[in-house]
């Protein structure tokens, strides 16, 4: 017999009867279930940005970093943990929502918001670490519902005017937005108000910079910084309003 045949035969003979215990399959399926639950919990920290580009039609005027998107996706404080391209997408989404709000009736906008919130919830619970939809972890009902939502969203956002892209100011990150506000505040606020305003904005910028430098900060540092940023946002509300911005409180 040729050596190769002998090898084949001897290996088959050697492994004959080697079988996995029956319990192994059950253990595996249990671990898959646990794995799925665990990954869903950790994913809820991220924002489902990708839906923005896919589902909402182009927009009208972009008025800085407003927080309409927060009402759909959660807190702006979460956005600050994201990378720059995600922030840009988030701001783009915000601009589109602003346009939708301006061009739709209240009932139509509410309907659109509800559809987006539901889609966002599905994205949030099924996103991988890079922010991409992880269809492997979704069940059939979720996949079907998402497809339906996409169709409904297209219908709900049909007819919103798409302005020329050059008309839309380039999206900026939160820090740039704050820095721009400093410049704008110089012109529109009284010197007394500007002193307080600039102090609050500069402190906010310092915190945002900390996030940029250390995106993996400890939970303790994270909550401390977010609490302070929230407080600063509260104190800045009246200035924002005076300058014509509607900025929602960071949650």
């Amino acid at each position: 017999m040729k050596l190769e045949n002998e090898i084949r035969y001897s290996l088959q003979k050697k492994v004959q009867g080697w079988e996995l215990p029956i319990s192994a399959r059950h253990e595996l399926m249990q671990r898959i279930d646990r794995d799925r639950l665990k990954s869903r919990r950790t994913r809820t920290k991220l924002i489902p940005i990708c839906i923005a580009a896919a589902l909402i039609v182009p927009t009208g005027a972009f008025a800085g970093y407003h927080y309409l998107a927060d009402s759909i996706y959660g807190s702006s404080s979460t956005v600050m943990n994201l990378k720059k391209d995600h922030l840009e997408q988030y701001e783009h989404m915000e601009a589109k929502l602003q346009a939708a709000k301006a061009q739709l009736s209240e009932a139509e906008y509410d309907h659109l918001s509800k559809l987006l919130s539901e889609a966002a919830e599905i994205y949030t619970t099924n996103m991988d670490a890079s922010g991409q939809l992880d269809t492997a972890s979704m069940n059939k009902e979720e996949l079907n519902r998402l497809t339906e939502l996409e169709q409904e969203l297209r219908k709900a956002s049909a007819g919103i005017n798409a302005p020329d892209k050059s008309d839309i100011p380039q999206p900026t990150d939160y820090k740039t937005f704050l820095k721009n506000l400093l410049e704008e505040g110089k012109k529109s606020l009284s010197p007394e108000k500007y002193t307080t305003f600039s102090r609050l904005v500069e402190e906010s910028i310092v915190i945002v910079e900390k996030y940029e430098k250390d995106q993996e900060m400890s939970p303790a540092q994270d909550s401390e910084n977010l609490a302070r940023l929230t407080e600063l946002n509260k104190q800045l509300q009246s200035y924002f309003e005076e300058m014509g911005y509607v900025v929602k409180e960071a949650k």
Partner: peptide
């Protein structure tokens, strides 16, 4: 399995695991 049917993956395991284990 990609559509979310966990039991389909159990069947994938049934079909492939013995030879892999050996």
């Amino acid at each position: 399995t990609l559509n979310g049917e966990t039991m389909a993956y159990a069947e994938v395991y049934e079909q492939t695991s013995d030879s892999l284990y050996q």
